[in-house]
C-alpha cells in the first residue's frame, strides 16, 4: 500500500507547491466564483418569475459548489497522458514495474482531488456567504460523512478517466468519449441544476445511472441530509465504483495482451 499512498501524497504536494499548477488552479477558483455569481443571478431571475421555488438560494448555491468543486478539481490532463502512453505503446514499459498501472494512476488522480477540493469548497463557502449572508445549510457534524461520500465520487471520476484513457487501445482517440461522460455528469448528474428541476420520468433515468449518484446524490446531502439518504448514496457509490473497477481491470488485462510497442 505504501507506494500508492506516496503517489497520493506526492501529487497533493505537487499541486500545492508548483507555481504552474497554482496558476491553473487560480483560474479554476476564479471560474468557480463566476459560476456561483452567475447561478445566484439565475436563482434570483427564476424566483422573480415563479411563485414557488423548491429550493432556497443558499441550498442552491451550496449544491452548485459541491458539484462544481468536484468538476473543477478533476485532473483532466490525465486522460490525454494515459491515451498517449497506450497509443505510443510506452505503457508496455510500465508492465514490468512492481506498481500496478491502474492503481497508480487512480491514486495520482485522487491526490489532485485531495489538494484541490478543500480549497475550492472554502472559496465557494466564502462566496455563498458574501452573496447570501449564510453558510451552507449542513450541520458541521455531518460534514465528514458528506466528505467521505465526495471522496467516493472522486474515486468514480478518477476510475472513469483511467478507463477512457485506456480505451485508446480500441478507439485511437478516446477524447470524444470523455466529452460525453462530462456531459452525462452535467445532465444526468444534475451538476448545475438539482435534478428535482427535471420532470419525474427524467429524474428516474438519472438515478439509474452512476452520474445521478456521484453528482446529485452526494451534492443534495449538503441541503437535505439524512442518514438514510447518506446510506443509500454510499451503497450506490460502492456498487458503481466496484463495477467500474472490475471493467477497468478487465480492460487493462486486454491492454497488456494487445498493446503494440511504438504504437
Amino acid at each position: 500500500m505504501k507506494p500508492y499512498l506516496l503517489a497520493v501524497l506526492m501529487n497533493m504536494r505537487d499541486q500545492l507547491q508548483r507555481s504552474r499548477e497554482w496558476g491553473i488552479f487560480l483560474i479554476r477558483i476564479i471560474f468557480l466564483c463566476f459560476m456561483i455569481l452567475i447561478f445566484h443571478k439565475f436563482w434570483l431571475v427564476l424566483k422573480a418569475g415563479e411563485t414557488h421555488m423548491v429550493i432556497d438560494p443558499v441550498s442552491f448555491l451550496s449544491y452548485l459548489t459541491v458539484g462544481a468543486g468536484l468538476q473543477f478539481s478533476r485532473p483532466e490532463g490525465r486522460v490525454k497522458e494515459i491515451e498517449e502512453e497506450v497509443r505510443t505503446g510506452n505503457i508496455a514499459y510500465r508492465f514490468i514495474r512492481p506498481i500496478h498501472f491502474v492503481l497508480l494512476n487512480f491514486c495520482e488522480c485522487l491526490g489532485v482531488y485531495f489538494a484541490r477540493l478543500p480549497i475550492l469548497f472554502c472559496v465557494g463557502t466564502g462566496m455563498i456567504y458574501l452573496l447570501t449572508g449564510s453558510f451552507p445549510p449542513i450541520n458541521p457534524l455531518y460534514l465528514p460523512i458528506v466528505l467521505g461520500l465526495l471522496i467516493l465520487s472522486a474515486c468514480f471520476a478518477s476510475l472513469c478517466m483511467v478507463f477512457i484513457g485506456l480505451s485508446a487501445l480500441y478507439f485511437y482517440d478516446p477524447l470524444p468519449f470523455f466529452w460525453i461522460v462530462q456531459k452525462c455528469e452535467y445532465v444526468l448528474g444534475g451538476l448545475f441544476f438539482p435534478i428535482i428541476f427535471y420532470p419525474e420520468w427524467f429524474q428516474k433515468i438519472c438515478l439509474m445511472t452512476p452520474f445521478g449518484w456521484t453528482g446529485y446524490g452526494v451534492s443534495s446531502l449538503i441541503y437535505d441530509f439524512s442518514f438514510d439518504n447518506a446510506l443509500t448514496v454510499f451503497l450506490h457509490l460502492i456498487a458503481w465504483n466496484a463495477l467500474l473497477l472490475g471493467a477497468l481491470l478487465a480492460l487493462y488485462k486486454t491492454v497488456q495482451k494487445k498493446v503494440c510497442v511504438y504504437g
Binding site: 439565475f42 431571475v45 418569475g49 452535467y186 445532465v187 428541476f197
Partner: peptide, 17 residues
Amino acid sequence: MLLYAWHLMFLNFSTIH
C-alpha cells in the same frame, strides 16, 4: 445533450427572464 438539459429546465419554468 446539454441543450436537452436546458430544454427540460425550460419545460419547468417556460421562460427565464
